[in-house]
Every structure is written in structure tokens, then in C-alpha cells.
């Protein structure tokens, strides 16, 4: 089951930008698109572990700052022909507050 954690407000994340959330399960990147949609991915590129939160956000994608892999914000999949996936986390927004859905550690294992 997902537990919803309040992590930020939409305003605290720059449009076409990202913020990092440190969690017990590792860093998670929160992205905000131009249309103010918020997405959450594990902050680790499937290629060589680059911090995706530091990349340039465009459309619904982010370009990894280390080697420019493009990762889809919606599902964490690398854009073809690259292959790989950064774990995606559910996000909900209520009255401008961003909640991150996380499975408890016990369930992960």
C-alpha cells in the first residue's frame, strides 16, 4: 500500500525544474513540467546513476546531466533507443501541496 507523504508545494518546485527529496529509500526527484504537472522518479539514471533531478526538463522528459540520456517522467523509461528504467513514484496534488506515494520499506522487500 502507498503511504502519502507531504513533501513540498507546487510553488517550491521551479517550472521545468526539479527538487530532491531524501528518503529512507534513497533520493527521489520531483519534477515540475511547464503545465505544472508533478512527477517523481528515483533520482538515479538507469545508465550510470546520474542525478536526474539535476537535468534539463522539457516536455514530459528529463535529460540526465551526466550523459544526456532522456528519461520519460511519466514512467521512468529511457527514451529509445536507450533502454532502462528509473523507478517512478505516484504523486498527488491537493490544494497546491505535493504528496509522494511510497510503499513502506517492509513491503519493498
Amino acid at each position: 500500500m502507498n503511504t502519502w507523504h507531504k513533501v513540498s508545494t507546487v510553488d517550491e518546485i521551479p517550472p521545468l525544474g526539479a527538487r530532491v527529496v531524501t528518503t529512507a529509500q534513497g533520493d527521489i526527484a520531483l519534477f515540475r513540467t511547464a503545465d505544472n504537472e508533478i512527477f517523481a522518479l528515483r533520482d538515479k539514471c538507469p545508465h550510470k546513476g546520474g542525478p536526474l533531478s539535476q537535468g534539463i526538463v522539457f516536455g514530459k522528459k528529463v535529460a540526465c546531466p551526466l550523459h544526456n540520456w532522456n528519461i520519460s517522467l511519466e514512467d521512468g523509461n529511457a527514451v529509445a533507443p536507450d533502454v532502462g528504467c528509473a523507478r517512478a513514484y505516484p504523486v498527488k496534488i491537493e490544494e497546491g501541496v505535493v504528496y509522494l506515494g511510497m510503499v513502506e520499506m517492509a513491503e519493498v522487500n
Partner: peptide
Amino acid sequence: REFEILSI
């Protein structure tokens, strides 16, 4: 803000 980290 660029350098601040959020946490839960």
C-alpha cells in the same frame, strides 16, 4: 532554493 534539499 537550487541548493536546498527536501526530506520526509
